[in-house]
């Protein structure tokens, strides 16, 4: 029921043992070169320049190639050629498993088809994002993954409302947030009314009733729901070549509502529930 990595799927299904995967990972790591290694091989940069970019990366959150271009060490054309070389020579985990004798090329095609069928449930459905919003593709994944987990994990009947750009978020019963870093810096917020929180808690704890549960446990279930959504967003984004990382979830105080600071973009995705419960997803994109 989760977004998975192909190697993980193969081990989980018992198709290959863990030590074969380990051999394949080692082969993949020795075969796949970083952009820094490729620009060195192509003679675009010398070792000293590569080290200079590596050092700069410790304080600047940018990819090696983009930073090297910004530092004036690499031209945009050279970066494109290096990225093309990286893509052409990339050894995928399935190919690496074939190389170490884990299975045949024919088996690979069959297992890839099975993997795609397993993951088809996580294909991103179209979510309309207002024009001009930055990182619309990643915001779409966040909204879509939340809807999927509302159905599969929380077992809620709902209808997504249209996405709006907002400058203020109203106070609600519970607000759980998770921060993203990497290709997109933003804060994901799930808001829920008391009855929606109760439904999430019942589903997460797999209990008929959560009447006697303390607030700490109920809040923890919402944070865990956010953790599951956002973790799967990171995994889905990685499959599309985007690198995101997440911080642990937290409950935030929404007393008086939250103003979106100037320069930030606030997106609000209302969710209409069948039994009048209220829920929404908000994404605050950092400038």
């Amino acid at each position: 029921m989760a977004v998975k990595f192909f190697g993980q799927f193969l081990v989980e299904q018992g198709i290959i043992p863990r030590d074969v995967l380990l051999q394949a990972i080692n082969l993949q790591e020795s075969a796949n070169k970083s952009v820094g290694e490729i620009v060195l091989d192509l003679g675009f940069l010398n070792a000293e320049a590569v080290e200079k970019v590596n050092r700069a990366q410790r304080t600047v959150d940018m990819r090696f190639g983009d930073l090297a271009v910004q530092m004036g060490l690499l031209t945009p054309d050279q970066l494109q050629r290096a990225l093309a070389r990286q893509s052409e020579t990339h050894l995928y985990i399935g190919e690496a498993i074939v190389s170490v004798g884990g299975f045949t090329d024919e088996d690979l095609q069959r297992y890839l088809a099975e993997f795609k069928a397993d993951q088809a449930q996580f294909a991103t459905s179209k979510v309309e994002i207002p024009a001009g919003v930055p990182y619309a593709d990643l915001c779409e994944i966040m909204a879509d993954m939340t809807y999927k987990m509302f159905t599969r994990v929380a077992r809620l009947n709902f209808r997504p409302g249209p996405c709006q750009i907002v400058t203020h978020l109203d106070q609600v019963h519970v607000m759980a947030a998770m921060d993203f870093t990497g290709d997109l810096r933003c804060r994901y917020i799930l808001t829920a009314s008391a009855d929606v929180q109760e439904e999430i808690a019942k589903a997460i704890l797999n209990q008929e009733s959560v009447y006697d549960e303390p607030k700490e446990v109920l809040d923890d279930t919402v944070m865990e729901f956010v953790n599951v959504v956002c973790g799967n967003v990171v995994a889905k984004s990685a499959q599309q070549g985007k690198s995101l990382d997440i911080m642990p979830p937290e409950i935030i105080d929404s007393t008086g509502g939250i103003d979106i600071p100037v320069g930030y973009t606030g997106l609000y995705f209302p969710v209409c529930l069948a039994d009048n419960g209220l829920a929404a997803i908000s994404i605050i994109i950092y400038p």
Binding site: M1, A2, V3, K4, F5, G7, Q8, V11, E12, R18, L21, L22, I25, E29, I93, M149, R152, V153, N227, V228, C230, G231, N232, V234, A235, K236, A238, Q239, I246
Partner: peptide, 26 residues
Amino acid sequence: ITSLGGVGDKFNEAIKLGARNVISKP
């Protein structure tokens, strides 16, 4: 245990360090 199961580098790192397997959430 992770909700980040699909991220290859995290999975690889755990397996290389000696984890027996990775359980995905949900």
